[in-house]
Design a protein around this nucleic acid. Structure first.
Lengths: 135, 135
DNA sequence: CGGGATCCAGTTGGATACTG
DNA sequence: CAGTATCCAACTGGATCCCG
């Protein structure tokens, strides 16, 4: 969510990293993907999102929605009824982004086990024994 | 960097979002990608990283390295010399991840202009005029 | 119903000093 | 050289109240 991207004045290989960050800064947020996924299925209302994206607070939902809207990933449609009705829809650009994420999803699935094991191994090794052996 | 991933007990479409998050949680950090990119070129030392990943602090470099190592994305090799020498190398899994990120990079490049414009438009519209027109 | 405003706790992350 | 430890500022995010 932080927009302070210092991709300027970066040279060489790190320039690649910056471009990646541009994308990550938009979906890196804890809730962005969840919202995007929900909105990709079709227009979705505020309260629906609140239910579908489990664990999100009202505040974060609003904030994330605003950011996604600002970046042109969501379109917000307000029906001037009472009580009010607001629908969020994923833009074509967002759908493309979603498609791009499947590669990442595939990677995560492919290596899920390996990562879990790597962590276990690391934690085993670095078990932080302050007691180094009491004879 | 936060490991508190609540991918459990989530149903339906949101399960997809969770898998994506698994991947994002590993590269979502502000510095992960920068380090990964640098390490993908071959073994790289601590101080080299500190220079190549511009703007990173010593603390964050250490922390991010530890996380990447723990997830099995980096291999850490220590040479018992004096002064000490430590080399970080991207694992095959990390290289695959890097490959997966190019899709995202492509997306970012493709829509960079559109996003910038979307933001400008949004900011223009929500310029927070408390003064609604003084005719 | 769909949010905005506010308050506050927890976390992130930079700067710096110290160590083997 | 390659970290670790500490302090502190900024940001994140939940809870709550209010409003159209």
């Amino acid at each position: 969510m932080s927009q302070g991207n210092s991709c300027v004045s970066v040279v060489g290989q790190q320039a690649r990293a910056c471009t990646v960050r541009e994308a990550l800064d938009r979906v890196g947020g804890k809730w962005s993907v969840g919202i995007l996924v929900a909105a990709s299925q079709g227009p979705v209302r505020f309260t629906e999102l609140e239910r579908q994206v489990e664990g999100i607070s009202r505040r974060m939902l609003t904030l994330t929605l605003r950011n996604l809207e600002r970046d042109g990933l969501l379109h917000r449609r307000v029906y001037p009824t009472v009580p009010p009705k607001v629908e969020y829809t994923a833009t074509p650009m967002a759908l493309e982004l979603y498609e791009s994420l499947v590669t990442l999803t595939a990677w995560a699935e492919r290596h899920r086990a390996a990562i879990t094991e790597a962590r276990a191994a690391y934690d085993r090794e670095h078990a932080d024994w302050t007691g180094s052996r009491a004879d």
